[in-house]
Amino acid sequence: MKKFVALWLAATCSLALFSQGKPTTKPMYLSYGPTDGKNIIKFNLLGAAIRNYAFYGERMLSRKVSLILGCNFMPRGGVPYLENFTDDETLKTLEVGTFSFTPELRFYLASGYGGGFYIGPYYRFERFSLYQLSTTFDADEEEHTIDLDGSLKTHSGGIVLGCQWLVGSRKNIVLDWSILGIHGGISSGNFNGLTQETISPQDQEEIKEDIEDALDIPIIKSEVTVNDHSAHVKIKGPWAFIRGSFSIGYRF
Rank of each mutant, 00 (worst) to 15 (best):
Y56P: 00
I68E: 08
R127K: 13
L148C: 10
G47M: 07
S222G: 12
D36M: 07
K171M: 09
R124W: 02
A231N: 06
L82V: 06
Y131D: 04
E142K: 04
S245T: 15
K221I: 12
D216I: 07
Y250C: 10
S100F: 00
E95V: 03
G57A: 11
V226L: 11
D138Y: 04
F246W: 13
S129M: 09
R170G: 04
K153P: 00
V233F: 01
N44M: 14
V160N: 09
G157Q: 04
I199V: 06
G97W: 09
G78S: 07
S230W: 03
F246T: 13
D213A: 02
E104R: 06
A240P: 03
G157F: 05
G189W: 00
G70K: 01
G114T: 03
N84A: 13
N39D: 14
G115L: 05
S245F: 05
L161K: 00
G150T: 13
I242C: 12
I186E: 00
R127Q: 13
D138F: 08
R76C: 12
R251P: 09
L109Q: 14
E141N: 12
G115Y: 08
S245C: 11
I235P: 13
E126M: 15
P103G: 07
L15W: 14
L130P: 05
F107L: 09
S222E: 01
K234F: 10
R63A: 08
I207Q: 09
S245P: 15
T154M: 03
D140V: 05
K3I: 09
P27E: 01
Y113I: 10
V96R: 14
W177N: 02
I248Q: 07
S134F: 01
F137D: 03
F117T: 10
R127C: 09
R106E: 08
Y118R: 11
R243K: 11
G77D: 11
G116K: 04
F191H: 06
S62E: 05
M60S: 05
S129W: 04
Y56V: 07
